[in-house]
Amino acid sequence: MTILQYQDLEFGDELPEVTPDVSMPTIRRFGEASGMTYWRFTDHEKARAAGLPGAIVPGIMSQGILVALIHRWAPSATVHKIDTIFRAPLDVDSQPVCRGVVTDMNDETKTIEIDLTICNETGETRVLGTAVVELP
């Protein structure tokens, strides 16, 4: 469901889940655009040799994925703030799930707060965050 206006919302509303594309070609595309071309993001073998489970998704890409989750749900939203904590690595070529829920509403400013998570296939929270979003 797409949200167009603040009045369409209720506290506790859930954003539609998204399974983002964190395949290696997309990670490399992001790397080219952001300068995040380090081997720990783009090379599974080198990452494993360094003790990681494999290449990992750049934290700021996870953040961008969460911003996109908000925009897909509420295209007219203005994201004023996004605060993400990178709790644990998110694996490249995995199938994570992004979720969001409305956890605060301010009727005067028409701003809301959203809890955001990215969980891995086993349901563990890997990226945690909150966003402050304004709606018309």
Binding site: F11, G12, D83, I85, T103, D104, E113, D115, L128, G129, T130
Partner: peptide, 17 residues
């Protein structure tokens, strides 16, 4: 330092859900 929840919102969440 790493908490992002307002206590009032915890209360609202418990009731709403």
């Amino acid at each position: 330092d790493d908490g992002r929840a307002k206590v009032e919102n915890y209360c609202q969440w418990i009731k709403r859900k």
